[in-house]
């Protein structure tokens, strides 16, 4: 069972996972999905991330990469995750379903944190004319 500890989640006795670690793994998992163009930072997340980076500088901690577009809500027994992203090359619906599944599997299996919900918000779609898309049969035909 997991319990929330002020932005962190206790996954076992004496084992605490910080929400930042959950956010970073969520970002990595989401980016690995084919069709995800980028994760998109919200204003609130951007300001919070700047504050975090400033804290890192002041406290002498290594400045971590920004975790754009990821929202982690630690709850008593689990976490709820939010992912804001841009997609392209595949239908947004397909990409969203795969992002949810990939994020959920990665966070639960790699961190042992129970995920109650993964909310995906598609904020932008990269536009490619249907004529510009090469059918898979043609790709196979021209492949050596």
């Amino acid at each position: 069972m997991t319990t929330a500890l002020g932005g962190a989640v206790e996954v076992a006795e004496g084992v605490v996972v910080e929400s930042r670690a959950i956010a970073r793994l969520t970002a990595t998992a989401a980016r690995s999905v084919d069709g995800v163009v980028s994760l998109e930072p919200t204003l609130l997340g951007f300001v919070a991330d700047l504050g975090r980076q400033l804290r890192d500088v002041i406290t002498g901690r290594d400045v971590a990469d920004p975790v754009d577009g990821i929202q982690v809500s630690a709850e008593p027994a689990a976490v709820r995750l939010g992912v804001a992203l841009s997609v392209g090359g595949r239908p947004a619906r397909e990409v969203s379903v795969e992002v949810s599944r990939t994020v959920r599997d990665n966070v639960q299996h790699n961190l042992g944190v129970r995920v109650d919900e993964v909310r995906v918000t598609v904020v932008d779609v990269a536009l490619i004319p249907p004529e510009a898309r090469v059918p898979q049969q043609q790709v196979a035909a021209v492949a050596p």
Partner: peptide
């Protein structure tokens, strides 16, 4: 990117329903 996201993430419509819901910006559609 933040400015663009904020401009586009105003109104959304459901994209996927279920335990892991997804929404898409109406401006993107």
């Amino acid at each position: 990117r933040v400015v663009r996201t904020e401009a586009r993430s105003g109104e959304t419509v459901p994209l996927v329903s279920g335990p892991d819901p997804a929404r898409i910006s109406t401006k993107a559609v």
